[in-house]
């Protein structure tokens, strides 16, 4: 039965996603629609967590924008994501490094 699930999901699971771990600094290039205009928005931040598996995997990216922490959670395999780039590998040892929220270095 699982084979059938992965068969359906395989069409959605993207293979152009770089290998990345929580704590890494990444850039998410996302298609956004503003009125009738379409453009690509770049969101650069720390990968805070990955959740889910297969087609429904999600990522949460965190950045500090003018002193305020902003977290964005989005489907990893969404066609709305143009590409994801790995900027810098991080040093987090946890799978969910929530301490980043309190860490002044980030």
């Amino acid at each position: 039965m699982d084979d059938f699930m992965s068969k359906v999901e395989s069409d959605f699971v993207r293979d152009d996603i770089p290998e990345m771990k929580p704590g890494d600094k990444i850039q998410v290039h996302e298609h956004v629609q503003e009125g009738s205009k379409k453009r690509v928005q770049v969101f650069e931040g720390v990968l805070l967590k990955r959740s889910g598996s297969g087609a429904s995997a999600m990522i949460t990216v965190r950045k500090v924008s003018s002193g305020i922490g902003v977290e964005k959670t989005l489907p990893l395999n969404s066609p709305k994501i143009e590409k994801i780039e790995l900027v810098k590998q991080g040093t987090a040892r946890q799978a969910k490094p929530y301490y980043i929220r309190r860490d002044r270095r980030y």
Binding site: D2, M5, P75, N77, P79, K80
Partner: peptide, 13 residues
């Protein structure tokens, strides 16, 4: 068989 997410052409899940 089970449930999953499906992405429409519009990009909607």
């Amino acid at each position: 068989v089970g449930m999953t997410q499906f992405f429409l052409d519009s990009g909607e899940a």
